[in-house]
Design a protein around this nucleic acid. Structure first.
Length: 330
DNA sequence: AGCCAGGACGGAT
DNA sequence: ATCCGTCCTGGC
């Protein structure tokens, strides 16, 4: 499956964690979003009902996670996590990992607040009942989500997948654990000596200079991630837009997915069509009308409302995957 | 062969 | 403040 340009690291199970979630919690839809493209960083095993995901800890430690539903009943839900690594993790590494997973899937967020705030919206509530307990998920750190968004810009998903695969095979790591083989995302250090031309050869196009620039930016601004987390949404957006390669679309994606502000929507052409269909039964609604309607109707939870509508359309429209990859109509 | 889709940018207005 | 040509690749 994976082109082995880098060597594979074999990992063993070294720890198990139980992470409780505030109910309701839908394991499958939280860890494995129907709209997400296959990246090689994660995979869902249907027969085991387990989700495999990799992570690079500070200090360049490659980790594999195997997650399943805690299955403690509706009142006591959560995540069971098996940790695979070369060496046993230090206590602070385990603590970091717990916090990281907790935040990536919003386990401590009370999703009932969103449900309450849109209780009057009948059409949305049909979707909510269907996907109940799904949370926003972003397993990437700031550097990784910027890289992915850069590769999402100005192209279709098929090409994004190709770019990701080239980048991961050339600059990431490959780990094997529990009979799965997955990539681990590269870090700024892995890119810093790469030239724009190297990435152009991998068909990253004009994004090449942004990817190289982002690695340099993170090398020079080591505190950027914690700084942005401390800011409010308006400040964070302003800061993000200063990074070359991040525009309004990418900034909104990061504000919603990664920083978990529930009121931001990334209006790419596909989301635009899905939301316009839901709201107006007309794909070609002007962007301005969409923005205003989402704001009026769902206010501070408009991002979450959009997430439910978008994921729902992927669940119920098998053609959508195909359409999204090839830029065909729904 | 030539045209178009897809975000970000930067220069022009 | 807003508009528009350009960047790059792949698909038609």
């Amino acid at each position: 499956m994976i082109e082995r340009i880098v060597s594979t690291i074999e990992l063993n199970k070294t720890n198990e964690l139980s992470l409780p979630a505030i109910p309701p919690f839908n394991f499958k839809l939280t860890v494995c979003k129907p709209s997400h493209f296959p990246s090689g960083l994660e995979t869902y095993d249907e027969s085991e009902q387990s989700f495999y995901r990799t992570i690079r800890l500070k200090g360049n430690v490659c980790i594999g996670l195997k997650m399943r539903d805690l299955e403690k009943g509706a009142n006591n839900p959560g995540l069971h996590v098996e940790v695979y690594s070369q060496n046993k993790l230090l206590t602070q590494e385990v603590d970091y990992l717990k916090k990281y997973v907790n935040n990536a899937y919003g386990l401590n967020e009370n999703i009932n607040e969103f449900y309450k705030s849109v209780a009057g919206d009948e059409k949305l509530n049909i979707i909510i009942d269907d996907l109940k307990g799904m949370r926003n998920s972003c397993f990437e750190n700031l550097y990784e989500i910027i890289n992915i968004s850069t590769m999402l810009q100005n192209t279709n998903i098929k090409r994004t997948e190709k770019m990701m695969n080239s980048m991961l095979s050339n600059y990431g790591n490959v780990i094997t654990y529990s009979n799965k083989e997955l990539f681990v995302f590269y870090a700024p250090d892995n890119i810093i000596n790469t030239s724009e031309q190297d990435l152009r050869n991998l068909k990253l196009g004009y994004r090449s200079k942004f990817i190289v620039g982002t690695a340099k930016y993170f090398k020079e601004n080591k505190k950027i991630e914690e700084e942005i987390k401390k800011m409010n949404a308006v400040e964070a957006k302003k800061k993000l837009l200063e990074v070359r390669g991040i525009g309004p679309y990418t900034a909104n994606l990061i504000l919603f997915s990664y920083l978990r502000y529930p009121n931001f929507i990334n209006f790419d052409v596909w989301n635009r069509k899905i939301l316009a269909r839901h709201l107006f039964d007309n794909e070609d609604t002007p962007l301005e009308d969409l923005i205003n309607t989402c704001e009026q109707r769902w206010g501070k939870y408009q991002g979450y409302a959009a997430l439910y509508i978008i994921e729902s359309s992927f669940v119920h429209n098998p053609k959508l995957q195909y359409w999204r990859k090839d830029n065909k109509k729904i």
